[in-house]
Design a protein around this nucleic acid. Structure first.
Lengths: 172, 172
DNA sequence: TATTGTTATACTCTATAACTATA
DNA sequence: TATAGTTATAGAGTATAACAATA
């Protein structure tokens, strides 16, 4: 099955089951694939439970409070507003969110979490936490924290939504 | 421009420029987006230089030695072999690799790096390294190393190609 | 005329299936 | 019949453009 075990060895032959050191030590590839793999696993497990990572994000934002207009929501999630429509349609059909036309500007739909939506958030949150624990199992709790803190600091420089300092500033 | 600065504040309104703590502290999202962002930047800068991240991976594997059959290459890179065809076509047209029909099995194409391919690898390697340095600039050299080591250890549990232990075992 | 939400369209990746030539 | 490489097709996901309602 595995070519690496069936092929004969020679000095000019690649080791098909492992990356060469240059690629295995490439930060772009390692960080890229780690992120893709953990996200992929979360998506799969959420899908198996009838949810999605988008659901988690949308519900997570709405848990903070109602959202004045769908554009505001698209802005935080950095989704195209046309893509958000279908997402909200699904959540609304399942009774997890509610869209209400804004009386002061009838073009606008204010979006809010329902009680069922709050319960669903709890459910998907547990799934996400389980995936994180499973996926990062080879690391100790301390190591997981270090990995996360460094990753977040690096990310915050390129994506302001993850900037803790800004968060604190805005909240004050 | 930014909705967060133009909208009036109220207790039930989301902060559109920042994720709520639940999402900003979600490891799946942070690792997922960090990986995506650094990969994206590498792809863009490579594209601007007339190359791609695939080029880097293919050339990086072939730098180890010729590859007996395209399937072996598809196996290491975990690409579908039909996808690999177009990739190799491009590299061959640019004179960076060479496909030679295997005399002992004329179905097979052995793939090898040309001198120009080796030079191109050096060029793209520098671009990738520059992106890594730029992207992880907020971290110290020591922190970058810690981030990478933890990321690789976590990844190796799910993707054997990044398993350093296996690499050493196979090389002995 | 500009903006909000929506719908329609197009484009990029990727995954699958079919084809050829060799074995 | 099975395999290596190739080509063709289809699907998911995403980005762009047009549209109707309201301002």
């Amino acid at each position: 099955m595995n070519p690496a075990t069936t092929e004969t060895q020679s000095q000019s032959q690649i080791q098909t089951s492992a990356y060469p050191p240059e690629l295995a030590s490439c930060r772009v590839l390692v960080l890229g694939k780690l992120g893709y793999a953990i996200k992929r696993q979360a998506i799969e497990e959420l899908e198996a439970a009838g949810a999605s990572l988008y659901d988690f994000s949308v519900l997570g934002v709405l848990a903070q409070g109602a959202c004045e207009g769908q554009n505001a929501l698209a802005d935080v999630l950095q989704l195209d507003r046309s893509q958000l429509v279908g997402l909200l349609d699904g959540l609304e059909e399942r009774g997890l969110i509610e869209r209400r036309r804004d009386p002061s500007d009838r073009r606008r739909h204010n979006v809010m979490l329902t009680a069922a939506g709050a319960r669903e958030l709890e459910r998907v949150r547990e799934i996400v936490k389980r995936v994180e624990a499973e996926f990062l199992a080879p690391l100790s709790a301390e190591e997981r924290k270090v990995l996360f803190d460094l990753a977040r600091r690096a990310l915050a420089h390129h994506d302001a939504r993850f900037d803790t300092a800004a968060e604190i500033k805005l909240a004050s």
